[in-house]
């Protein structure tokens, strides 16, 4: 192939290339070095005074702000945790107290019920005893009265006997009257 493209090292450029002077790659041209030194030192001085303090202060301010906010948040969290723990403790105490009160109330109610029952039973027993005593008293009184009435009748009967002769019919009538009175006494 004619005019084949080849790539190799050549010593010099051809004439007629761009007519500009280009120093060699490793040429010790001091002007760029001095320029770089001066430009960098001036730039550094300017930035050191005008720029970096603002940037560093801005970053530090924000760091401090974030640290402050985090510290505040931590403190708030700790306070919230403490309040929650206290609340839970109080809630547990209240529950315990309520349970205790309920148990106490149950025990009291039970005691009162037992007391009422005992008292009622005692009162009933007393009322029964009293009734029995009353009945006994009444019975004794009745018997005493009966005896007294019987004695009175006997005396009366004896007096009537002593005053007149008692026929069979009288005798019969007296007995019946006595029995009738006795029955009346019993009914009373």
């Amino acid at each position: 192939m004619p005019n084949a493209t080849t790539l190799f090292l050549a010593a010099e450029p051809v004439a007629g290339a761009h007519a500009v002077e280009r120093p060699e790659v490793m040429a010790l041209t001091w002007l760029p070095a001095v320029t770089a030194l001066v430009v960098f030192v001036l730039a550094f001085g300017f930035l050191y005074v005008m720029v970096w303090p603002k940037i560093i202060k801005g970053l530090d301010d924000r760091d401090q702000k974030i640290r402050r906010e985090i510290a505040n948040a931590e403190q708030a969290r700790e306070q919230a945790n403490a309040a929650l723990a206290k609340y839970e403790q109080e809630l547990a105490s209240a529950r315990e107290e309520a349970s205790r009160l309920i148990a106490q109330a149950r025990a009291d109610a039970k005691a009162v019920a037992v007391e009422f029952r005992d008292r009622n039973e005692a009162e009933l027993a007393e009322m029964k005893q009293r009734a029995i005593r009353d009945l006994e008293t009444a019975r004794r009184a009745a018997i005493t009265e009966l005896h007294a009435e019987t004695a009175t009748l006997a005396v009366s009967i004896a007096g009537r006997i002593l005053k007149r002769e008692i026929s069979v019919a009288d005798q019969q009538r007296l007995v019946e009257e006595s029995l009738g009175e006795l029955a009346g006494v019993r009914k009373r």
Binding site: V51, W52, K54, I55, G58, L59
Partner: peptide, 9 residues
Amino acid sequence: MKAAKAIAT
């Protein structure tokens, strides 16, 4: 300078 203005507090 523009960046410093933007970053500054």
